[in-house]
Simulated scan of single mutants.
Amino acid sequence: MGRTLAVGAVVFGGVTLLGVPLGLLWWLIAPRPEATVTSQGLAYYPLSQTWFAVDGYYSIMMLVAGLVVGYTCYLLQQRISHRHRLDLRLATLLGLAAGTVAGSFTAWGVGAGLDFHAAERALALAAPGDVVPAGLTLRAHSALLLWSFSAVLQYGLFEALMLRQSDKAREAEKTAEEAAAPQEGRPSAA
């Protein structure tokens, strides 16, 4: 029980930490939307496609990260389970699900946090009517679940494939045993 909890905690921590480089990557590659300075603050209308591109970059990164992390965690879990004769599937899956949610929030915080001060400085120096970069922000909060969704889906698909293969192997073994059983009981015709 202690080993399975430790594996789940390691998966959770490792996957959560992956949010830091993902947030940095989002900050580096995502376009910066622009906003117009008014006397009351920033005006975000009319919305440009850049606002949607920011969410799109984040979403695509999280989907790809989920596929890679789900596949990697499943393979590592299989290897460790076979080596130590432990069933680590549930602990790994729970650590993966919780870690990807925490990692998504970490990536969002890192990306938006790195842009926060630059956007605040640009706003402080701007006069009403100026157009300034607004900084990264995630408007589609549902994108925070994409990493978890794709990772758990990938992990589950591999588990289903492995269960299907083991079922087929058991059926083939059972068929071979049934075919050999009647021949053992028959007397030889010599």
Rank of each mutant, 00 (worst) to 15 (best):
A98P: 06
A98E: 10
G99C: 11
G99P: 01
T100S: 12
V101T: 06
V101N: 00
V101C: 07
V101F: 07
V101D: 03
A102S: 13
A102D: 00
A102L: 13
G103L: 01
G103R: 03
G103F: 02
S104V: 07
S104A: 15
F105V: 08
F105I: 03
T106H: 07
T106W: 02
T106M: 14
T106Y: 12
A107Q: 01
W108C: 14
W108Q: 13
W108N: 15
G109D: 14
G109P: 02
G109A: 11
V110A: 00
V110C: 07
V110Y: 02
G111M: 06
G111L: 08
G111C: 11
G111P: 08
G111A: 11
A112C: 15
G113I: 11
G113L: 13
L114F: 12
D115C: 10
D115K: 04
F116H: 13
H117N: 12
A119H: 02
A119Q: 03
E120N: 15
E120W: 10
E120D: 15
E120Q: 15
E120A: 15
R121D: 11
R121V: 14
A122R: 05
A122H: 09
A122E: 07
L123S: 05
L123W: 11
A124V: 10
A124S: 11
A124M: 09
A124T: 12
L125E: 14
L125M: 13
A126L: 09
A126T: 10
A127I: 06
A127N: 14
P128V: 02
G129R: 04
G129P: 08
D130L: 13
D130M: 11
D130Y: 12
V131L: 10
V132R: 01
P133D: 07
P133T: 05
P133I: 04
P133F: 04
P133M: 02
A134N: 01
G135A: 06
L136Y: 01
